[in-house]
Design a protein around this nucleic acid. Sequence first.
DNA 1: ACGAGCGCCTGTCGGC
DNA 2: TGCCGACAGGCGCTCG
Length: 274
Amino acid sequence: MPELPEVETIRRLLAEGRRGGPPLPGQRITGAQVLWERTVAEPDAALFVARVTGQEILSLGRRGKYLRLNLSRDVLLIHLRMSGDLWLEPLEEPPHRHHRVIFDLSSGYRLGFNNARKFGRLWLVEDPAPWLDKLGPEPLDEAFTVTDFYARLHPRRRRLKPLLLDQTFLAGLGNIYTDEALHRAHLHPLRIANTLTVQEAAALLDSIRFVLREGLRQNGASIDWVYRGGGFQNTFQVYQRTGQPCHTCGTPIRRIIVGQRSTHFCPRCQPLRE
DNA sequence: ACGAGCGCCTGTCGGC
DNA sequence: TGCCGACAGGCGCTCG
C-alpha cells in the first residue's frame, strides 16, 4: 500500500491536525490497547502499553516508508506495510473494527493504527538506528546526486524492478511508483542495473523524483478502500493499465510478473536492450 | 549476489 | 445468489 508519498502525506496530515483531529505534537498518550498482538514487534505487548502510556508526542518524522513518532522518552516506529493507516477519531466513538492498536490521547481523541491485513508493525525503542540505518538513501534528498546513484547502480547485476523495490538500495519506492518511474525513464523493468549509462541513470533518478513529487502534490494514490482522497491514481501511465493504450505511443500496456510482483510497462517506449 | 517460493492476512472483484 | 480463484500499495525468511 503506502509508499513514500502516502506515508509522507499521512505524516503531514497528522502533524498539522488535518486527519480528523488536532495536531499530534503536544498531545500526551493517556492509555493504549493492543488488539492484535503481533502488530507490536518490540517490546512485548504488555510492556509496550506500560511504557508508551504517559509519554508526550513531540514531533513526527519519516524515513523511507517508516513513520517515526518522537515521544518524550522513546521513539515509536510505525510501518504500514500493505494496508496500514492511522486514524484520529473522538474517544466517544467506538473504535473501527480494523484497528489493531489504539492510543488514547489527552485531547479526547484516539489514534488508531488501522490495518485490515495485519501486516503492519510497531516498534517502541530508545534508538531506531538499527532499523533506519539499514535503509538506502532518501530519493528526494538533494544531497543524493546522480553520481551517487550511478555509483550504487554500477556494481549491481540485478534487474531494475526488484532493485528499486529493495529498501536497502533506495528507500521509499513501492510497486506503483517504481513502474511509473521506469516508464517515464523509458527503461525496461528487466534491464540489468550495471548496463545503464550515466545518462540513463540520470533519467531514472529524475523520473523517480518526478513521480514521487507528483504523488506528494496529489496527496498520494488511493486505488481501493485504503487512502481515499489521494489523486495520483488519476495520473497513472502504466500501473493497473494492462491492455490499455500507452498515453505516449498507443501500444497496449503489458503486465508481467517480476520477483512475484505485478509489473506494468509499455513494450515500445521501454524496449529491452543489451 | 541474486532469484524463486512461501508465509503472513483480509477484502474485493470477476467469472461461472 | 453463492462459490472460487486471482489479486492487492510490503517484506522477512529459507533454499538453491
